[in-house]
């Protein structure tokens, strides 16, 4: 392992992290809910009365964030290396797995660890491990 100091952005990473944590905090204390993106989006597929509008509002905020950003300044770089077949396969896997695993990076990784949930701790270690493993296989065994 070599650390890529040129790519390392500690301050924006911390600042962005604090904003994400603040969002999770507000959602908990004002809306009484966990800010878990896969759960919020997944719940839209089985709509029940009174349970749709807040989900739509949250997703609209997420999707709208770059538009608000653009009103102030230009967007940071978003580079997506993966081709379309890979994106489709990845999307399908992320969709089905996050529902079975009851969470993703936000619900388990941020909120779950913040409330010291054993389930979320195990889940986060598990998805980090296969995340690292998958990139290793794709970049250094197949692509290397």
């Amino acid at each position: 392992m070599t650390i890529d100091w040129a790519a390392f952005t500690p301050w924006s990473a911390l600042a962005g992290g604090v904003l994400i944590g603040l969002a999770a905090a507000l959602f908990l204390l004002v809306n009484g809910r966990i800010a878990g993106i896969s759960g919020i989006v997944g719940g839209l597929l089985t709509p029940s009365r009174g349970d749709v509008a807040w989900r739509v509002a949250f997703v609209a905020g997420m999707v709208g964030a770059p538009l608000v950003w653009l009103a102030v300044t230009s967007l940071p770089a978003i580079r997506i290396e993966a081709g379309y077949p890979m994106l489709i396969a990845a999307g399908l896997i992320v969709g089905i797995s996050t529902r079975y695993g009851a969470g993703c990076t936000s619900g388990h990784g941020v909120c779950g660890i913040s409330r010291l949930s054993p389930r979320s701790l195990v889940a986060t270690v598990a998805f980090m491990a296969t995340g690292f493993g998958t990139v290793y296989v794709l970049r250094h065994m197949i692509g290397g």
Binding site: I37, A82, I93, F127, T130, G131, T134, L138
Partner: peptide
């Protein structure tokens, strides 16, 4: 929980997207 989380990591590593950033 375990299989779901393991699977999610695979999908995350394939494209670099998890649900929030993709939105």
């Amino acid at each position: 929980l375990l299989l779901g989380a393991l699977g999610f990591g695979i999908g995350w590593g394939m494209a670099g997207f998890c649900p929030g950033p993709a939105l």
